[in-house]
């Protein structure tokens, strides 16, 4: 139930913030940039930053990292083999499926909600 409420609140807030080219600023929502909390997802943590101007969201950016817990480096740099390098280039032609890192909608929505809550404080 909590989840449904959150989703309703999320879309309600977006509608209020983006809605109808309204010129009036939404009461109680501060201008500025707000970072939502990082939410864990099947892809790793997802975090969204929103910018609010005149009571409306004017920008939303994903600040995301993978499951990154340690930073120390174990690998022996001196033993690195030579590996082939190339500049990536767009390829044409049909493919059946695409592999890539994707944002998870649920974590994204949660982080946006969190940022909106901060703006409304």
């Amino acid at each position: 139930m909590k989840r449904l409420k959150q989703i309703a609140l999320f879309f309600g807030s977006l509608a209020a913030l983006f809605g109808n080219q309204a010129k009036t600023a939404q009461a109680g929502v501060k201008d500025g940039t707000f970072d939502g909390a990082a939410y864990d997802a099947y892809y790793g943590p997802v975090q969204v930053e929103i910018s609010i101007k005149g009571g409306r969201i004017v920008d939303a950016t994903a600040l995301q990292s993978p499951n990154h817990r340690r930073t120390s480096l174990i690998i022996n740099q001196q033993a690195l083999p030579y590996l082939r390098q190339e500049v990536i280039q767009a390829q044409s032609g049909r493919v059946d499926a695409v592999s890539g890192a994707t944002l998870t909608s649920r974590a994204y929505a949660s982080s946006v909600m969190d940022a909106i809550r901060q703006a409304a404080q």
Binding site: I88, Q91, A97, S99, G100
Partner: peptide, 18 residues
């Protein structure tokens, strides 16, 4: 055989390897 694309990390929808 199945053909899979690797997506560009910079432009969604762009395939950079098949």
């Amino acid at each position: 055989p199945w053909r899979l694309g690797i997506s560009s990390p910079f432009r969604s929808g762009e395939i950079i390897k098949v």
